[in-house]
């Protein structure tokens, strides 16, 4: 019997699911509604200067990286399994596309955060 390598993807999926369940909705509220509309939060909260300095701080970088990369792996895994559920058993191809996209996104996010400087 061949040992499954699913634990790697399942743990990333689980971690992403946990983070998105805990802070996903409030992130959408802050960045999509409260700050842009000036409801409860000042509009300047998401100004270019604020967001830039946030992403130049080491803690901000870590936060952004974790959010982006775990959300990506969570959604890649979910899309991969949903494809299987709706009858598209693309196997290795689907795996490469889904997890490949997550890997690419992770690398791009990491490089972009590093290029923003400290």
């Amino acid at each position: 019997m061949k040992r499954s390598n699913a634990p790697i993807f399942w743990l990333l999926f689980g971690a992403g699911g946990m983070v998105s369940a805990l802070i996903g909705p409030v992130l959408v509220f802050i960045t999509g509604i409260a700050a842009p509309a000036g409801m409860l939060l000042p509009r300047e909260l998401l100004s270019y200067a604020n967001v830039l300095s946030f992403s130049q701080h080491w803690a901000g970088k870590c936060f952004l990286f974790v959010i982006i990369f775990l959300f990506l792996w969570h959604s890649a895994h979910r899309i991969f399994h949903t494809l299987h559920d709706i009858g598209l058993h693309a196997g290795l191809g689907a795996k490469l596309v889904c997890y490949g996209a997550a890997t690419t996104g992770t690398l791009v996010a990491g490089c972009a955060l590093l290029r923003l400087g400290w």
Partner: peptide, 14 residues
């Protein structure tokens, strides 16, 4: 447990 860990094992469950 080898059967649990295998490709036929638990990770097929969604």
């Amino acid at each position: 447990m080898p059967l649990v860990h295998a490709e036929e094992g638990v990770f097929n469950c969604t």
